[in-house]
């Protein structure tokens, strides 16, 4: 048996926790980015709170979906991946948008 399907009584929780995982991952990433932009401490705290909630949802989701042995790798991937992603995106945004020396640029004009 490769998978054990969700129990009838847990359907709702499965959908709900799945939706919350994606929504909280986004909220966390957005709050993280916003806290960087504005530099406000409260946003950093809120970001961490939403990450904590995300971890709870991953836990519930994994439990309800009967994750065992290698499926648990997916839980781990989600926990680490969604935790690390905002940093990466932020780093990328900051790095790619960071510029000092560019001339005005016409689209289609020049290529690197």
């Amino acid at each position: 048996m490769l998978i054990e399907p969700v129990a009838l009584s847990d359907f709702f929780l499965s959908f709900f926790s799945a939706a919350l995982i994606i929504l909280l991952a986004t909220l966390y990433a957005a709050l993280f980015a916003w806290s960087k932009v504005s530099g406000r401490k409260i946003l950093t705290i809120l970001a961490w709170l939403s990450y904590a909630a995300l971890l709870v949802c991953i836990g519930v989701f994994s439990y309800i979906n009967h994750f065992n042995d290698y499926w648990l790798v997916l839980s781990l991937l989600m926990a680490l991946g969604y935790g690390w992603m905002p940093r990466l995106i932020w780093g990328l945004c900051a790095a790619t948008h960071d510029e000092t020396t560019h001339q005005t640029h016409q689209s289609g004009g020049h290529h690197d």
Binding site: I22, T26, V37, M85
Partner: peptide
């Protein structure tokens, strides 16, 4: 395919999350 489909499709939302965050950044900028 349970494993492959399950794992990889679970990763599919990642670029979508990334784009929302990126657009917040851009909108701000």
């Amino acid at each position: 395919w349970f494993t492959i489909g399950g794992f990889f499709s679970a990763l599919e939302p990642i670029p979508l999350v990334a784009m929302v965050v990126h657009s917040i950044y851009d909108a701000g900028a």
